[in-house]
């Protein structure tokens, strides 16, 4: 009996272990929630009519199971966060009113998450235009989908991938009038039209994160969360196109041609205000030029001194 119990205990531990290791979402079709919420349509038995019914799933409530499995929260089951009562269908109406956990409910004040600096993120976010306009209703989830969240900026080595991931968050509302109106209550021209002034727009959008110009950078935070109002967004090309000489060079070419396109006359060309720093961009050349200059000057001074001495004799 004792042996039997030991085996049973061992087996139960083993199954528990495999259960926690396993993906809840490995088999969506047999998952209590995903069998409906990962599909375009769902079927259920209508008790009132006593019929089998097939209906369309609300597209906003469809979960992408591949993204879900790749997200950081993949080892939580749906009911770890959502009420267990969701397991019955039709879902009770009052469930919609239940408060959901915020990021800080789990991540706040936890040593193991300290490096992600959730509190600092919260502090910065509360200075942002998002919080000012929409207050607490602007939850983290408005940008960071808890279902799919993956720390792309930390894990990816591809700039294009990080940029795409980051910009998608912004564009999910700022390029989607329905979602945008949820927060702002107004409709706006599209992102492309607003950024009409930006040269090579497509390239910029692929290689530069929106937050690069639209946030106040805080050195201690990996990703700045203080999103500025549009009036305060940076529009200074030189912020990026001066530190790096390659970027500076392309800007020089662009501006020069642009100005000439506006005023092609000889006088317009001569009044072109663009300039590019030459050898002083390269520290070694700068030092070399100073050495040559002072050597020449010293030679002249020494020579002059001898001339004066000889003349006095």
């Amino acid at each position: 009996m004792k042996v039997f119990l030991s085996i049973l205990l061992f087996l139960s531990c083993f199954t528990f272990a495999t259960r926690t290791m396993a993906q809840y979402y490995d088999d969506p079709k047999n998952h209590d929630c995903l069998k409906c919420h990962s599909q375009q349509t769902y079927s259920f038995h209508n008790d009132m009519m006593d019929t089998e019914q097939k209906r369309l799933m609300n597209p906003y409530l469809i979960i992408d199971t591949i993204q879900l499995r790749n997200g950081v929260h993949h080892n939580f089951d749906c009911t770890d966060c959502h009420s267990y009562e969701y397991t019955t269908y039709p879902h009770t109406a009052t469930l919609k009113l239940e408060p959901l956990s915020t990021c800080l409910d789990c991540h706040g004040g936890d040593e193991s998450y300290a490096k992600y600096e959730f509190e600092k993120v919260q502090e910065e976010f509360q200075k942002s235009i998002h919080y000012k306009v929409y207050g607490d209703n602007f939850t983290c989830a408005k940008c960071h989908n808890q279902h799919y969240y993956a720390p792309a900026a930390r894990n990816s080595s591809s700039v294009v991938e990080i940029v795409e991931y980051s910009n998608k968050m912004c564009l999910s509302c700022h390029n989607d009038m329905k979602r945008f109106s949820l927060v702002s209550g107004e409709t706006k021209p599209t992102v492309v039209a607003i950024h009409d002034w930006l040269p090579n727009q497509e390239l910029h959008f692929q290689h530069v994160r929106c937050i690069e110009c639209h946030t106040v950078v805080v050195d201690s935070l990996m990703v700045s969360h203080n999103i500025l109002s549009k009036e305060n967004a940076l529009r200074r090309c030189a912020e990026c196109h001066s530190a790096n000489s390659m970027l500076k060079a392309s800007l020089y070419k662009y501006q020069n041609l642009q100005e000439r396109a506006e005023d092609g006359s000889v006088l317009g060309m001569l009044s072109n205000e663009n300039y590019v720093i030459g050898s002083h961009q390269i520290p070694a050349l700068k030092i070399l030029s100073l050495i040559i200059f002072f050597a020449a000057l010293a030679g002249i001074i020494i020579h002059l001194t001898f001339r004066i001495i000889i003349k006095k004799k």
Binding site: A249, I292, F293
Partner: peptide, 22 residues
């Protein structure tokens, strides 16, 4: 970048002219 090379050439040659002038 070609612009960089041109700019460096331009200012390096300008520098030699300055030393010549001196």
């Amino acid at each position: 970048s070609g612009v960089l090379i041109t700019a460096v050439t331009h200012s390096a040659m300008g520098f030699f002219i300055s030393i010549f002038l001196l």
